Deep mutational scan, measured.
Amino acid sequence: NRRVIAMPSVRKYAREKGVDIRLVQGTGKNGRVLKEDIDAFLAGGAKP
């Protein structure tokens, strides 16, 4: 169970979209999950 780095607003956005943030690959600094990562996940998967 890895620790997810994300701003509270991004965590809320993921919850609102029904996304398990632990499944999203973060592309920000130090692997931080960004809102754009949530959108990319919803569009068909995590960014490479």
Rank of each mutant, 00 (worst) to 15 (best):
N1S: 03
N1C: 07
R2E: 08
R2H: 09
R2G: 05
R3A: 06
R3F: 15
V4H: 05
V4W: 05
V4L: 09
V4E: 12
V4A: 07
V4I: 14
I5H: 02
A6Q: 08
A6W: 05
M7A: 00
M7Q: 02
M7C: 04
M7R: 03
M7V: 02
P8D: 15
P8V: 14
P8L: 13
P8F: 04
S9M: 15
S9W: 13
V10Y: 02
V10P: 05
V10F: 01
V10G: 01
V10D: 04
V10R: 01
V10T: 04
V10I: 14
R11G: 10
R11M: 14
R11Y: 06
K12M: 08
K12T: 11
K12A: 08
Y13V: 04
R15T: 14
R15K: 15
R15S: 14
R15E: 13
E16M: 00
K17H: 06
V19W: 00
V19G: 01
V19P: 00
V19H: 00
V19C: 13
D20F: 01
D20P: 11
I21N: 03
I21Y: 08
R22W: 13
R22S: 15
R22N: 14
L23F: 03
L23A: 12
L23D: 15
L23V: 12
L23P: 05
L23I: 15
L23R: 07
V24R: 00
V24P: 02
V24Y: 00
Q25A: 13
Q25W: 10
Q25I: 04
Q25K: 09
G26Q: 06
G26I: 02
G26C: 05
T27Q: 08
T27M: 06
T27W: 02
T27V: 03
T27L: 04
G28R: 03
G28L: 02
G28A: 09
G28E: 03
G28D: 04
K29G: 03
K29V: 02
K29Y: 01
K29H: 02
N30R: 07
N30W: 08
N30K: 10
N30T: 03
G31A: 09
G31V: 06
G31T: 08
G31Q: 13
G31E: 08
G31D: 14
R32C: 04
R32Y: 08
V33S: 01
V33Q: 03
V33A: 06
V33L: 08
V33I: 15
V33H: 15
L34H: 08
L34N: 09
L34C: 04
L34V: 10
L34G: 13
K35I: 12
K35F: 09
E36M: 05
E36F: 07
E36S: 07
E36N: 13
D37L: 00
I38P: 00
D39A: 08
A40M: 10
A40C: 10
A40H: 06
A40E: 06
F41I: 15
F41T: 10
F41Y: 04
L42Q: 07
L42Y: 07
G44Y: 03
G44I: 05
G44N: 15
G44S: 12
G44H: 13
G45Y: 05
G45V: 12
A46M: 15
A46F: 11
A46C: 06
A46K: 04
K47R: 03
K47S: 13
P48A: 15
P48W: 05
P48I: 15
